[in-house]
Every structure is written in C-alpha cells, then in structure tokens.
Amino acid sequence: MQKSNARKIATGSDEAPLAFRTRGISKVYGEGPAAVHALRGVDLEIPTGELVVLLGPSGSGKSTLLNILGGIDQATSGSAYFQDKELTAMNERALTRYRRNHVGFVFQFYNLMPSLTARENVDLVSEIARDPMPSMEALEMVGLGERATHFPSELSGGEQQRVAIARAIAKRPTVLFCDEPTGALDSKTGISVLKALQHLNDNLGTTTLIITHAAATAAIADRVIHFADGKIREVVKNETKLSADEIHW
C-alpha cells in the first residue's frame, strides 16, 4: 500500500449516489455481563461502484458489519440503508428478496454445492435471479470456462473460489460482499481471485466490499476502512489503486 497516496477523509463524501449509508449501527451478542459488543455505533457511507476493503483484527466488527449490510444478520440498534431502502427495517422476507435481487456473496470456504458442477452452481443462482448473465459468461469472466462441467471435488481451492465468484456475479448483483475470499488460498491463487474481483468491479461497476487479513490487499481498493473494537478507526481513500498483479503477501 502506498501510504503517501492515501488521504485521510471523514465519513461522508462528495461522490454520489451512495450504495450504503449507516447511522449508529450497533450489534450486541448475548446479554448482561456476558454481552459482547461487536459493533459500537458505526456511521458509514459507501458510494456506488467502489471497491472497498475492510481491514482490522479478528473481532473488530468488520464481518458483523458486512453481514448486516448483506442482509444475513440483524443490527441491535441504529439504521442501515441500501440505496434509499432501510435494511434495518426489513423483515425476513424482504431481506431474502434483497439478497436474491441485489447481493452477491463470496466466502472464505467457497460454500459451493458439492453435488453440482461449476456451471450448475452458477445456474443455481441464475435460476432465481431477475436478469442473470449466461452462466458460461460468468465462468469465463473468472477464467473457468473450460472447467464448467467439473464438480467442486475436482477443482482446486482457487478454482472453487472463482466458481463462487462467478456464482455471485451471475445475477449481476448491485453489491458484492467478499468475506476473506483469499483466506483459504495461497498467495498466488489468492491474487488470481483478487484479479477476478477487480476485473468485475472495473467492468461491471459492482460495488464490492472485501474483508481481508492481508493488508496488502488494501492497495487495490478505492477506499480502505480500518476497524478496531467494533468501531471504524479510520477510512482511507486511495488516490491511486494498484492492480492485483502488483501486490503480494
């Protein structure tokens, strides 16, 4: 990461429109003395189309925030908006619809269906999406067109993760959430996965949020959000972004 090119900014920005906006988001697990405060009043704005990297130690709250923004977890207090819709006011059914229509997820352990081939895993999502891209196109975008008929057990970790990315983007999501997408991969494979994500962000303009432990990843982001103790410690906007090819860890 090139610190010199970084400019510390306040929450809020002049770019528009916003993909996400949160006000005082808190999340508490458990009750009483055993209560764990995963998020302690987070205010945040993320413009549409940016690639955002969330950094911070384990338990700092980044996954919790991602899960709330992704509609798979509920905030304890505060409000979160996706565009102009309040996520924190949605019921279970509306959240499912939100995930189905707008959200793509990529996880550390891929979460592919072992009984479906690469292409079928992509189709799984295309079948319920409103305006999906052809599954082969999605696979080709991540460089796996030739491995389409393989089952997950026949693919390497990096390939499986790229299938997961293809699956996530096939629905042409508005936002893409990636929780430790390279966590289970070696550096070289991890970079190929990041390249795929970056390529999609550049070409499809999908707002992309990536959680990572690898600080080097921050260099490919438009914006880097540093977490500590359930709060945002700082938000750094990169003046210049590196290509995934240029980083290593």
Partner: peptide, 16 residues
C-alpha cells in the same frame, strides 16, 4: 446445514 445456509444466503427463501 451448511448447504442450506448457503442457499439462504444466496437469496433462496426458507421454502425454496
């Protein structure tokens, strides 16, 4: 359980 949770995350309803 894992697959089912993944399906839910992918936007499948409880019934689906």
């Amino acid at each position: 359980e894992h697959d089912l949770a993944s399906l839910r995350v992918l936007g499948f309803t409880k019934i689906e």
